[in-house]
Amino acid sequence: MLHLGDYNYLEILRDLEHGLYLGSDDGDVLLPRKYVPAGVQPGDMISVFVYRDSEDRLIATTLEPKAKVDQFACLQVRDLTDFGAFMEWGLEKDLFVPYKNQHEPLHVGQWALVYVYLDENSDRLVGATKLAPYLNYDAMPPQEGDEVNILIGPEKALGYQVMVNNGFLGMLYRNEVFRKLEPGELTKGFVKKVREDNRLDVSLQKQGYDEVEQAAENILARLQAEGGQLPLSDKSAPEEIYRQLAMSKKTFKKAIGALYKRGDVQLFPDHLSLSQKD
């Protein structure tokens, strides 16, 4: 049975001028010539993503979409019609988001978190920006301090809307972001707070004592790798600290303070160095 909107491992049956025909229990599926990997031949098994083309025919591709069925993605609006929006998601055919599935009207160029699902009536893959029906309310949400997978969504007034562990909606606040983030970026993060509605406040850094201890160890390792000195101090710009060490200035200052008290480092107005111990 074919899994529409997902990867399928299928056998190559025939090699024709316009592409390969792949066998499945639901009939043959065309892999167009432009997607055929070099060196494959009839009898080989191949992994392909299967969906429907603009004429509703089953089609295979070796392109990788930004989301599979039953997953969330952050996508950009490519075009609008009288019926809805088309989102660019990495395939030749854009993902359709009907007006009835839109949380608010979309506009060309806008980024939005989108859930991809298989519409049972049309047997087509469609998207929805009304996310509430697809959030994971049944499962226990990650708890404060847990490391999680974060999908970066669109930028809002307070920060970045994010999807956590492909099931929980969250917020990454602007004042805790110290590097450039791209819509659709996947990164690791940590839960700061679990709200009553299972929505999460998240951070890119660990919180509290554990965060400072880890930051101190990272600074020591970097100092050792750089020959015992770093051109950073408590006067350095937050952006420069994050560029070099991937931590906030607040965490950096706490960490070098702890290292100084332990006698591991020496602090200077324009740099940081390892202590010379006997």
Rank of each mutant, 00 (worst) to 15 (best):
V29R: 02
Q244S: 13
R243I: 07
P142K: 01
V126Q: 10
P42C: 05
V212R: 04
E217M: 14
N136W: 10
D25I: 08
R179L: 08
V265Y: 15
P32H: 06
L169Y: 09
P32R: 06
A246P: 00
Y51G: 07
K253A: 04
L13V: 14
R33D: 05
T62A: 06
D94Q: 12
P65H: 00
F96S: 04
D123W: 14
P42L: 04
V162T: 03
G27Q: 06
G84T: 05
G189P: 00
S236Q: 06
S54A: 14
Q224D: 11
S54C: 12
G167R: 10
G263C: 09
R33S: 10
S248Y: 08
W89E: 05
E88H: 15
G170E: 03
L30R: 04
V212T: 11
V177L: 04
E55D: 13
L20R: 05
W89H: 11
L272V: 10
S24V: 05
Y160V: 03
V69H: 06
I256T: 06
Q266K: 15
G263T: 05
V126D: 05
A139F: 12
N165P: 02
P37H: 02
R124K: 13
K180R: 13
R243Q: 13
G153L: 03
E185S: 11
Q214S: 14
L274Y: 15
I152N: 02
L125E: 07
F178I: 06
V202H: 01
K253T: 09
L4D: 04
V126H: 05
V162H: 02
Y173P: 07
K66E: 07
D28H: 13
D94G: 05
V212G: 04
A216G: 09
K235R: 12
N218V: 10
Y35L: 00
E211M: 12
I150A: 01
D26C: 07
V162D: 01
V69L: 09
A237Q: 12
S273E: 13
L204N: 00
Q229W: 14
L80Y: 13
D210K: 15
I219S: 01
L75R: 00
L267D: 03
K100P: 00
L80P: 01
D270K: 14
P32M: 05
F49G: 00
W111Y: 15
V77T: 04
D119E: 11
D264R: 15
T81K: 10
P269V: 03
E239C: 05
M163T: 01
E147G: 08
E182S: 12
K192I: 14
E88K: 12
L245A: 02
D94V: 12
L95T: 06
F168P: 00
G189W: 06
D146E: 08
D210G: 15
A73H: 09
Q205W: 10
